[in-house]
Design a protein around this nucleic acid. Structure first.
Lengths: 146, 146
DNA sequence: CGTTCTAGTTGTATAGTACAACTTGATGCG
DNA sequence: CGCATCAAGTTGTACTATACAACTAGAACG
């Protein structure tokens, strides 16, 4: 087998290991925010508010799933809904102050975990690894993580 | 922010994106084998048979979870249980011929997906990316993917 | 108008998971 | 030996995330 083929196999194996571990540990590290909730909140922060339908499309989730996640986040007072005055079918979702705080806190703790895991890596390797990951995720067929 | 810090943030973000996508697409691409089942079967193949308790410990799953997964895999005739003659509490799990085939088939299809995604990468980059991933996963605190 | 489209909710079902209680077999101690 | 304790697995129960289908409410367009 060529070096390229064997590298692809390693990438497959290691990405699978990572995905499995992430799945296993996601809920336990941040009980206040599941991986999906974290992602949705992060998206709201980036976008400065968006519709549930946008979240569903962007993350390839069913609108009913998003609806329930959003309902939970609203119950927890992390987001609020504002009726779009232009179109009364639409509810624009916004982070609350509490939501922003929780998001920042979870982001900090995740960042710390990654930093610790990457401690001791030479800067040059960090930069290259980051570039490879971006390239991988941006690759053709946007959704295919598997 | 230093280049190193910004690289760590990128790694965090891209790994999170990957984990979310993997989670979303895992079940859909291989209806015959969930990501966990695939992993368990793969472990059985590597080890050439092991106990349910070993699987639970290795993948940080509850023994009841493994018990049900194993039951499903046995119902599907992908694995079989053999009572350990030394200790009648223990059931040693083995792949069946069908299990080996399904595993090989899913592995092939996953490999094809990765190969397609990585098509066009220079061999040198594949090799380096693979090395970074191995280093990341092998890193301190074995479980922390998050 | 009414038909059709869109945003979102709710009913229902499934998978994966954990925890606790239990069963069965092994081990060890007095 | 015989009883207490430990270990492997199973089963009961509950919860979360998810999808699909049916529905409601509002908008758009002829």
């Amino acid at each position: 087998m060529s070096a390229a083929q064997s590298a692809v196999e390693t990438i497959q194996r290691e990405m699978t290991i990572f995905a499995r571990r992430a799945r296993a540990s996601a809920g336990r590290m941040h009980p206040e925010l599941s991986l999906v909730s974290y992602t949705l909140l992060g998206h709201l922060e980036e976008e400065g508010g968006c519709r549930a339908t946008d979240l569903a499309a962007h993350y390839a989730l069913d609108k009913s799933t998003v609806s329930r996640q959003v309902a939970a986040l609203e119950r927890a007072r992390l987001i609020e809904r504002r009726l779009d005055p232009e179109d009364h079918r639409v509810q624009v979702l916004h982070l609350t102050e509490a939501g922003r705080e929780i998001l920042a806190q979870v982001t900090r703790s995740r960042r710390a975990a990654f930093r610790e895991r990457l401690a001791g890596w030479p800067e040059e390797d960090l930069v290259r690894f980051a570039a490879y990951l971006e390239r991988y995720n941006a690759g053709p067929g946007g959704a295919g993580a598997d």
